[in-house]
Amino acid sequence: MTWSEAEYLDCLRTERRGYAWAMRHHGGLTPAEAAAAALERYPYEPDDAPYRGLIFHDEAWHWAMLAIHGNRYVVEHPELVEPPPEYRDLK
Score class of each variant (00 low, 15 high):
Met1Lys: 13
Thr2Ser: 11
Thr2Gln: 10
Thr2Val: 05
Thr2Cys: 10
Trp3Ala: 07
Trp3Tyr: 05
Trp3Thr: 01
Glu5Thr: 00
Ala6Pro: 01
Ala6Gly: 02
Glu7Met: 04
Tyr8Gln: 00
Tyr8Lys: 02
Leu9Gln: 13
Leu9Gly: 06
Asp10Gly: 13
Asp10Pro: 09
Cys11Ile: 11
Leu12Lys: 04
Leu12Thr: 10
Arg13Cys: 05
Glu15Asp: 13
Arg16Pro: 05
Arg16His: 05
Arg17Phe: 03
Arg17Leu: 11
Gly18Val: 04
Tyr19Ser: 03
Tyr19Lys: 06
Ala20Arg: 09
Trp21Leu: 13
Trp21Gln: 07
Trp21Val: 07
Ala22Tyr: 09
Ala22Ile: 04
Arg24Pro: 12
Arg24Trp: 13
Arg24Ser: 10
His25Ser: 14
His26Pro: 02
Gly28Met: 11
Leu29Lys: 08
Leu29Gly: 05
Pro31Lys: 09
Ala32Glu: 13
Glu33Thr: 08
Ala34Phe: 14
Ala34Gly: 10
Ala35Lys: 09
Ala36Gly: 03
Ala36Tyr: 01
Ala37Val: 01
Ala38Lys: 03
Ala38Gln: 03
Leu39Ser: 12
Arg41Met: 05
Tyr42Gly: 10
Tyr44Gly: 14
Pro46Glu: 04
Pro46Thr: 02
Asp47Met: 09
Asp47Thr: 02
Asp47Glu: 10
Asp48Gly: 07
Pro50Gln: 11
Tyr51Cys: 11
Gly53Met: 04
Leu54Glu: 14
Ile55Asn: 15
His57Leu: 15
His57Met: 15
Asp58Arg: 15
Asp58Trp: 15
Asp58Glu: 13
Asp58Gly: 13
Glu59Arg: 15
Glu59Met: 13
Ala60Gln: 10
Ala60Cys: 09
Ala60Tyr: 12
Trp61Lys: 04
Trp61Leu: 01
Trp61His: 02
His62Cys: 11
Trp63Glu: 11
Trp63Pro: 04
Ala64Ile: 00
Met65Trp: 00
Ala67Ile: 00
Ile68Trp: 08
Ile68Tyr: 07
Ile68Ser: 05
His69Cys: 05
His69Ala: 08
His69Asp: 05
His69Lys: 06
Gly70Leu: 00
Arg72Lys: 09
Tyr73Phe: 07
Val74Asn: 15
Val74Arg: 15
Val74Glu: 12
Val75Ala: 15
Pro78Tyr: 10
Pro78Glu: 09
Glu79Thr: 01
Glu79Met: 00
Leu80Lys: 14
Glu82Trp: 14
Pro83Asp: 08
Pro83Val: 02
Pro84Trp: 01
Pro84Tyr: 06
Pro85Glu: 13
Pro85Thr: 14
Pro85Ser: 11
Pro85Tyr: 06
Glu86Gln: 08
Tyr87Phe: 09
Arg88Thr: 10
Arg88Ala: 14
Asp89Ile: 08
Asp89Arg: 14
Leu90Ala: 01
